[in-house]
């Protein structure tokens, strides 16, 4: 089945045109795919860039925060706080562990340690002894001599006390010898008081936690 040349040319042209249309449609589909892939890539890149930027910003903020904290001066010392270390206390002035604690003085403490002499009652080494009527009351003590009735307590060395700023009382430990006479006692009793446990109304000197170091330091300055 032959077709004339002119008609054959028409068929060739129509076939070519048809092929070109198919190729162009294929290219159009490819362009759509390229555009979709490009959009997806751009979106992914934008998301990655966003996360990277957020990470960098967080890192910068962290570094700035650390830097500011490093540059920040130390907080000022509270004027009411005495800062010292116990290591600075001279060994020769450090008090002995046994300390006699007494009721704080009602007098107002001064800036420095208020050093005062007082006469404490004759403290027995045990509670049983304190219950005896021979014990003189502290209020009756004057100038280191107990004036209680029928009591004659002689302190060879009057106990020196230092009242601290927090109303605690530090007492220089020393061996105290009492001689007391009483109507009920016979003879002379010499008692050597090394220490006295803290009573209910007195505050233990070394039981303080935060202020113990400062107290101890100040104790080192006490000139008994």
């Amino acid at each position: 089945m032959n077709t004339p040349d002119n008609l054959q040319q028409l068929f060739d042209a129509a076939k070519r045109k048809q092929k070109d249309l198919r190729r162009q449609q294929k290219l159009s589909d490819l362009v759509d795919q390229w555009a979709a892939a490009e959009a997806a890539s751009k979106k992914s890149r934008n998301r990655r860039t966003l996360w990277l930027s957020m990470g960098i910003a967080a890192g910068i903020l962290l570094m700035v925060s650390i830097g500011l904290r490093a540059l920040q001066p130390e907080p000022p010392v509270n004027p009411g706080t005495i800062v010292a270390k116990i290591d600075t206390v001279p060994q020769n002035t450090q008090p002995e562990p046994s300390i006699t604690v007494d009721k704080p003085s009602p007098t107002t403490p001064t800036d420095s340690f208020h050093k005062q002499k007082t006469v404490t009652k004759a403290i027995a080494s045990s509670t049983a002894e304190r219950d005896t009527p021979m014990l003189a009351e502290k209020e009756n003590s004057v100038d280191g001599v107990n004036r209680a009735d029928n009591d004659s307590i002689i302190l060879d060395n009057s106990i020196e006390q230092a009242q601290l700023a927090d109303n605690s009382v530090a007492t220089k430990p020393q061996k105290t010898v009492y001689e007391r006479t009483s109507n009920r006692l016979v003879g002379t009793k010499k008692t050597s008081i090394i220490s006295q446990p803290a009573t209910a109304d007195s505050r233990p000197l070394l039981a303080l936690t935060n202020s113990s170091t400062s107290i101890t330091y100040e104790l080192g300055k006490i000139n008994f």
């Binding site: 040319q9 028409l10 068929f11 060739d12 042209a13 129509a14 070519r16 045109k17 048809q18």
Partner: peptide, 13 residues
């Protein structure tokens, strides 16, 4: 252009 003309002519016929 010639191809398009011929193709169009054939489709018309």
């Amino acid at each position: 252009e010639l191809t398009e003309r011929r193709s169009a002519m054939l489709h018309s016929m």
